[in-house]
Amino acid sequence: MSKNDPSHEFIENPFSLSRREFIAIGGVIIALLALPAIWIRSALINRNHHIQARTKGLYQDDATAKIRLSHENQAVMKLYKDFAGKPLSPVSEELLHTKYVNRMKALS
């Protein structure tokens, strides 16, 4: 702005703030801007916590179980003895196995 510019005769003092004030206020602004960024970051990091906690719960159920192998389940063995015979027996095939259907033809 040339000093002979006739369009205006006054301008704002470029710094009506002291240096210290400037740094303090500027610092606060930047800190406040960082807050939401930090919050979102931590929300993103913890987003799978519930999945991990539930997973852990089931592994804990396994780790503390007295029997940990399916073929040692006495109730299942009783079911085969009293009723189904053995895996893939005709009764098993009828009650415990199934067939699937092609549904793609209908789509095209």
């Binding site: 702005m1 002979n4 369009s7 205006h8 005769e9 006054f10 301008i11 704002e12 003092n13 009506s16």
Partner: peptide
């Protein structure tokens, strides 16, 4: 730009404290 009188009426403290005369 705004006219000096106008600013002096609406923002007297600004006009008094924060301005610098050019030249």
């Amino acid at each position: 730009r705004i006219p000096y009188e106008d600013a002096a009426e609406k923002a007297p403290l600004w006009v008094k404290n924060d301005l610098r005369r050019l030249g």
